[in-house]
Amino acid sequence: MRRRPNYLAGAASLAWLFIVGLPLYVMLAATVQSRSDYSKGGPLSWPEGFTLDNFTSAFDEGFGEYYLNTVIVTVAVVGIVLLLVPPLAYAIVRSRSKVTSLVFRLFLLGLAIPAQAVIVPMFYLISEAGLYDNLIGVILPTAAFCLPVSALVLSGAMRDISPELFEAMAMDGATPRRMFFQLVLPLSRGGLSTIVVFSALQAWNGFLFPLVLTQSDSTKVITLGLYNFQTEHGINIPGLLAAVVLSMVPVLLVYLFARRALVQGLMGVGGK
């Protein structure tokens, strides 16, 4: 029973393709043109020449260092999340302590806290701790704000592990620690990859914490570099757009090679 094609939705999807595709085309076309060619032809025309100067000049502006800083922040945030969340989710799912169910409620409540809400006291805390303008001062709050979603996603994955498996291991006299390493971790790989991608995206795309908690060039992350580039060279459109493209390359690579994990990580972003 094949149904008639849905013309209305088809038309909407084509219109949307145009709305998404046109800016992406203009962006890519602009980045391979020199500034004068771009000004002459305007944003909508087919590129005249071809040059990679915009990308190399972005690196001259310090993008290499911003990249490195962003990688450090991202790796550290993912590391903290992977260290803290699996034991937490294990306790949430398996522990019978009343304290753990309170903890679970605390993290559910944590879902409601936007970063904007705590940025003023965070500035106070980080300054008092002597971590202002230090990457560690960006890493710690960014990781903390990844915890609620990660805990929910991973405890959801662990809950799907069949109770019989735990009972079988308990029969063999396995300790909670052995169950954790031999049963829980291997069987929640899907959830683990989701929280890795989710927290990596949060760290890579994070803007507010770096904006407020750092100031010098040596601690700048990519998003902040983009913002600075925009305020300082706002009229160098090809250069600016090349910087935008550079900022998304790693995410694009993850998208190409681990689409499923990325989509689920992004849904976590939306759940925030």
Binding site: L84, P87, S95, V103, V118, L140, A143, A144, A174
Partner: peptide, 27 residues
């Protein structure tokens, strides 16, 4: 048998309390 205690949740909870709950109270 084989049930983890709440100690497993302590590190994450302390970290979250320090960098999210405490600032929320401070605000």
């Amino acid at each position: 048998v084989g049930r983890p205690g709440f100690a497993w949740a302590v590190p994450a909870t302390l970290f979250f309390a320090l960098f999210a709950i405490a600032p929320l109270v401070m605000v």
